[in-house]
């Protein structure tokens, strides 16, 4: 179980502020992608984020473009999960396909503060924040399979080989 600090943001955090459109057709390198994470939302984020940190936000996280870098840049920046009140549809798929954990848990979003240290127990479906514990429904097996494989591409690769 990894712990990390919380980076808390508001509602309707869109893909353009997570990963600006001007980079979507030129930046494909993971490290370079991580360097632009949340650039237009919080210019301090990319320089300070540490492996295991958690992004916490309100409703409709990841709305807007289908650009997968919005999920990928957070993963490459070391973010272990995004906890939100709800997720935009394409972002949710992209996150799982990239192997980035996404947790829908409105109570946790209300109960966790920016900069707080939290830990996530994925198998038990629990978020631990000091004395507070928040539960979330464990992900379906199919999704866990994708996350464990490291995302959709490694998963499909195994499937094409007949390993799954």
């Amino acid at each position: 179980m990894k712990s990390g600090r919380v980076w808390k943001y508001g509602e309707n955090i869109n893909t353009d502020v997570i990963f600006p459109g001007k980079y979507t057709y030129s930046v494909l390198d993971p490290e370079e992608m991580a360097g632009h994470a949340l650039e237009d939302l919080d210019p301090d984020f990319a320089g300070s984020v540490q492996p295991g940190d958690v992004v916490v936000a309100g409703k409709n996280f990841g709305c807007g473009s289908s650009r997968e870098q919005a999920a990928a840049c957070l993963k490459f920046a070391g973010v272990q999960a995004v906890i939100a009140k709800s997720f935009a549809r394409i972002f949710f798929r992209n996150a799982i396909n990239q192997g980035l954990s996404v947790i829908k848990c409105p109570e946790a979003v209300d109960g966790i503060s920016d900069d707080e240290k939290i830990a996530i127990d994925f198998s038990a479906g629990k978020i631990l924040a000091g004395e507070k514990v928040f539960s979330f429904p464990p992900l379906p097996d199919s999704v866990i399979g994708l996350l464990e494989a490291g995302g959709l591409i490694p998963y499909t690769k195994k499937k094409l080989k007949g390993d799954i």
Partner: peptide
């Protein structure tokens, strides 16, 4: 709409 790795898949 879907993402890039999904379309590749």
């Amino acid at each position: 709409g879907i993402g890039r790795s999904e379309l590749a898949s």
